Computed example of a mutant assay.
Amino acid sequence: MSEMKRPDEKTAQRRNTTVGLACAGLFFCMVGAAYAAVPLYNLFCKVTGFGGTTQVAENESERVIDRKITIRFDGNVNHELGWDFKPAQRNLTMDMGETARLSYVATNIGSARTVGTSVFNVTPNVAGAYFNKLECFCFTEQALEAGETVDMPVVFFVDPDMDNDPELDHVKEITLSYTFFPVETSEQPVTARADQPAAETKL
């Protein structure tokens, strides 16, 4: 007949089982948090403009205020993509709330068709919460034949609510920067060609 376990042994077993279940629960919670972290971080950036993330607007601003802001434009290309990419003009001074249009110009200087896609940010980063894009070519695959040149328009405005943000009282300039990277295998239809001239036009 087997020896019965003493009360202290039973208590120790229950404690070990509880600790094991707690560890397992913590593990699954951490895994779930890891999967949720990226979309939550992206949502946070979109709402707050953190990291220079701009906003997406469906309509133009309903008001324009008499505070000037200068937008500087910057274009870069990863060394593995044989393109020339730059803004049609380097800067633009506008009123907050005013809608403006500017084109970037991209040329495939390589000998074969290539596909690129761009990422962007604005600086200072905190201004991203007030920089609203109505039209943009970012994150869209762009295919260029060898020697082909296309215009890529950006339509945007700076939210006049920026004037009420004490952190941005001193800000007189915002830089909008794009960087193109090569796409090895196209996974989505490339963007339609824009026929607009490579010059800034106020809407």
Rank of each mutant, 00 (worst) to 15 (best):
V19A: 08
Y35A: 02
V31M: 13
I65P: 01
D84S: 12
H79R: 10
G51F: 05
I65S: 01
V19L: 13
R67H: 08
M30L: 13
I69C: 01
L21N: 01
C29I: 13
F28M: 06
G75I: 00
L21D: 01
H79S: 11
F50Y: 14
R90N: 11
I69W: 00
V19S: 02
E60H: 06
N42D: 13
E62V: 10
C29H: 04
N78H: 15
C29P: 04
L40K: 11
A36V: 03
T93F: 07
E60Y: 00
T54V: 14
L92P: 01
H79M: 05
A36C: 05
L92W: 13
V47Q: 10
D66H: 12
A88R: 06
F28H: 07
E80A: 12
R72L: 05
Y35W: 15
I65A: 03
V47L: 14
Q89Y: 09
G82K: 14
K68E: 13
G20W: 01
K68S: 07
G49Y: 08
A24Q: 09
A57T: 05
D66P: 04
A36I: 00
G75V: 00
E58D: 14
Y41M: 06
N76K: 15
V19H: 02
L92M: 13
E60G: 12
R63I: 00
R63L: 02
L21H: 05
F44H: 11
A57D: 04
Q13A: 11
R15I: 09
F85I: 01
L43T: 05
F50W: 15
G51E: 02
F27G: 05
E58S: 14
E80S: 09
I69V: 10
A57W: 13
D66M: 08
E58N: 14
G32C: 14
W83R: 00
E58K: 15
V64G: 02
N76F: 10
V38E: 09
N76V: 00
F28R: 03
D66C: 07
A33N: 07
W83C: 00
T93A: 05
G75Q: 02
R14Q: 06
G32P: 12
N91I: 04
A24P: 00
C45Y: 08
V56G: 01
V31L: 12
R15K: 12
F44R: 11
R90T: 10
L92Y: 14
N78G: 02
F28S: 08
G52K: 01
L40Q: 11
F50G: 03
Y35R: 06
V38K: 12
T54Q: 07
T70M: 02
F28I: 06
C45G: 06
I69E: 03
I69L: 02
A22Y: 02
N78E: 07
R15V: 13
A37D: 13
A88P: 03
G25L: 12
V19C: 03
V56Y: 09
Y35V: 04
F44D: 08
V64T: 08
Y35Q: 07
L26K: 03
N78W: 15
A36D: 12
T70H: 01
G32M: 15
N78F: 15
Q55W: 01
F73C: 00
R14Y: 07
T53Y: 10
C23K: 15
N42W: 15
K86G: 07
S61C: 14
I65W: 04
C23D: 03
A22T: 03
T93R: 10
A88T: 09
K86W: 06
R14K: 11
